[in-house]
Computed example of a mutant assay.
Amino acid sequence: MFNVKKAFGFAIAATLIIVSPVKADEIIKLATTTSTENSGLLKNLLPTFEAETGYKVQVIATGTGKALKLARQGDVDVIMTHAPDAEAKFVEEGYGLNPRGIMANDFVILGPKNDPAKIRGSKTAEEAFAKIANSGATFISRGDNSGTNMKEIIIWNKANIDNNFPSYKAVGQGMGKTLLMANELQGYTLSDRGTFVAYKAKLDLAIDFDGGAALANPYQIMQINPSKYPDLNHAGAKALSDWLISAEAQGMINSYKVQGEQLFKATYSE
């Protein structure tokens, strides 16, 4: 005979199992760059890691400078960034442990397809930036202390150009929004190639300068020093770092494509 009370009890139990919250030690707080989020890479990688380990990754996508600040404050368990000098300082200060280079792409200078500043054919990024500044063409900067913004400032400094010229606009946005603004204003901007490829269908911009190895863009994952913040999820951070250098994850990074184009190259080696 059908027992209504027993059936109802089973239903309640099943509901409780489904909605039971994730335990604190199962959550990994990852601060990373907007490029890893905007490109769709993390959405491709993390479900596999979570299914295999039982951890749940909470992604905070922001500029590298903000990601490092969150780590210094003990607000995240692990970081994945792309600003080598800033990362080296983070380790030297005793905050970062076990930096691992996991992948790379490169930076490109995007601009209108008719290239009004005539930067195509430039021999260096510095020469291209100088042409943009001297032509009066619009340049859209992320202006957010991200790894991309840090690289941009390095280029301006090497070119001996003050980037406070009238057509320079710092927008304080992530890479995706910066690309959309550059597209709307038909200006130039510096972008990582991965985010550009992911957004290309929405843009009427071209790669007007490709610097190759000179504009390399390496990404690292780093754990937070337990001596600074012992209560963070260090076990989860290590699990994520270990997984990202595994053959499985490195293969997934290499095989991830958007519109048939590879966005990142796996770089980890023992």
Rank of each mutant, 00 (worst) to 15 (best):
K5E: 15
K5N: 13
A7Y: 06
A11P: 01
L16S: 08
S20A: 15
P21R: 12
S35I: 15
G40V: 03
L42R: 07
L45K: 08
L46E: 00
T53K: 00
K56L: 04
R72H: 02
Q73T: 14
G74D: 11
G74M: 14
D75S: 15
I79P: 00
A86K: 03
A88S: 10
E92Y: 12
E92F: 06
G94F: 13
R100A: 12
I102C: 05
M103L: 11
A104V: 02
N105H: 06
P112A: 13
K113H: 01
A117E: 04
G121N: 12
S122Y: 06
K123V: 15
A128E: 09
A133I: 14
S135T: 12
S135G: 11
A137Y: 09
K151T: 08
N160A: 14
N160V: 09
I161T: 07
D162Y: 02
F165L: 02
S167N: 15
G172Q: 09
G172M: 10
T195N: 04
Y199I: 11
K200E: 15
A201T: 13
D204Q: 13
G211H: 01
A213W: 04
A214G: 07
Q220Y: 07
Y229P: 03
Y229R: 10
N233M: 08
Y256V: 14
E261G: 03
Y268L: 11
